[in-house]
Structures are given as C-alpha cells and as structure tokens.
Design a protein around this nucleic acid. Structure first.
Lengths: 136, 136
DNA sequence: AGAGTTGGTATCTTCTGGTAAGTAGTTACC
DNA sequence: GGTAACTACTTACCAGAAGATACCAACTCT
C-alpha cells in the first residue's frame, strides 16, 4: 500500500511547496538558481564535463572566488560532481549529474532567450527613456 | 531584397551575441533575469494583471523597495506595462507584455523545477555534509 | 633560472539588498 | 477636528555579499 507514482509525487510536491512563501525551502532554492554565475556554469557544462580552468576561460569575467563558490554550492546541491585526478599538476573535472542535466535545459533556455530578445529589450529601453524625458 | 525571416534573424542573433562574453549586452541582461524577485514577479503576473498590493501579498517577503525596483526595471525592459488609474485611492495595474509572456514560461519552469526537485537537492546536501564530516 | 600551468585561497573594496521609517492625497470614523 | 486607514511608493541606514586583485604550492618547459 501507499504506492505512489512519480506523477502523483510531483503533484503532491506542487501543493506541499510554494516558492512564493518566504522561508519555504523552494524559495531559497529559487534564490540559488536565480544567479547569473549558476546559469552560465550550468550552461557551460551542458555540453559535457569541463575542467576548472576551462570554465574560467569560457565564462569571461568570472573571478576564481565566485567560480569556486558557485561550483561548491552546485556540488553540494547535487547539480554537478567534482572529480579530482591526482596527476601533476592536479586535474579537476566538473560534470552535471542527471539532476543537473534536468535543470540545464531550463537555464540555457533563459540564456538563449536573453540572446534572442536583447534587441527588443534594448528598443524598449530607448522608448522608456524617450518617454521619461518628455514627461520630465 | 535583404528580406529575412524570423528564423534567420534568430539564427543571426545566436551568433552575434554570446552571454558568456563579459560586457556583452546579453550577459548583463542575463544578470537582470537571474534574479529571485524577477522570477517571482513574472511568475505571479503570468496568470494575468495584478495590482501592486496584490503582488506584495502574493510574493511573501518582498519589501516595497525591491518590488518597486523590480517592477521599474521590468517595465523599462518591456517585460511588463504599468497602468495608473487615477481613482481614489490611486490604483496601479501591472501586466505582462507579449515579450514578458514569452519569458514567463521559462522562468516559471525554473520555479516549478525548484518546487519539484527540492527534496532531491535536500538529500544531496545531507549526503554532502555527511561525506564532509567523515573526510574532516 | 624564469615563465607558465594547475586549482585554488586571502584580502580589500565596492555594491547590493533588507529593515524600518516617512510621504502624499483622499476618505471614513468618532 | 483629530486621527486612523488605504493606496503606492521613497528614503536613510547598515550588514553582508559580490567583485577585483594578489598570492600560493607544485611541477614542467624552455
């Protein structure tokens, strides 16, 4: 008894958790996921495993501090794995877990949206500033 | 001549902009979109227009400062519109634009992912901390 | 011997976000 | 007549987070 299907569990989860609620764990998780570096790291890893310095080069402008910090929290949360090869010099590979891959599609979709709609956003900004100048 | 289809323009945009590049406008836009309050506001508006105080109640824990700030930048970027009704007391309605609705699906997908996978993330954290305690 | 590679840590400064309080303009209550 | 309430904000302050930069240790290559 008490057999639940994956669909039933998802349905239950949808009611049990509400990201709109403060102090709800999902609210905090959403805060973690809503991070520029998280989006870029996960997008960069969606093509396969990469090394630390690979990521540093691919993600322009990321400081070693923020890259390490982002990778650590993503590892802790089960989004990616960290594999150390004790060669000389040491080699560290980061790779998405199945959980991470299920997220990667969503985050890269947001990144792609930004790339595809940047011009519309830019146009909207110009309209806004023109209207503001006329109003003020 | 020089007729381009929407698909061609999208393809062009994909090559012209790269969110991995620092100082690329899309990188900055991704930074704006990767925001907890942006996700929650857009998700809250995806069901239809809402008033300021509606949003405040729905999005628990948001301060008036951050709500106003988030709404202003989203208005400026053409994601939503702000409509003032000069009644007494004044009434302000916020509504997603078509551009905003095209984004809403992606951001609510991330929010729903957080709600659906929070338990896996939680389990991963416990495993991580156990492993850490054994290692240390 | 000196530069370059690896994967980071330490430190300092700048900036952002949360808290709490105040504002304006009208209406309702006592 | 005073004051409380409702609306949609604005402002000042401060702790904590983010960002830039310098540095580290071990080794290889030239």
């Amino acid at each position: 008894m008490a057999t639940t299907t994956a669909a039933q569990r998802r349905e239950q989860a949808r009611y049990a958790y509400d990201a709109f609620m403060r102090d709800c764990p999902t609210n905090q998780l959403l805060g973690r996921l809503s991070d520029k570096w998280v989006s870029l790291v996960v997008a960069a890893l969606s093509g396969g495993p990469r090394r630390y310095s690979d990521l540093r080069r691919r993600i322009a402008g990321v400081s070693p501090k923020m890259l390490t910090q982002t990778l650590r929290t993503l590892e802790r949360d089960g989004i990616l794995t960290r594999a150390v090869t004790p060669s000389v010099p040491v080699r560290v590979d980061y790779e998405l877990t199945p959980l991470g891959r299920s997220l990667a599609g969503l985050l890269t979709a947001v990144k792609d949206w930004a790339e595809e709609h940047i011009e519309e956003v830019h146009a909207a900004r110009e309209r806004y500033e023109t209207a503001e100048a006329q109003a003020g």
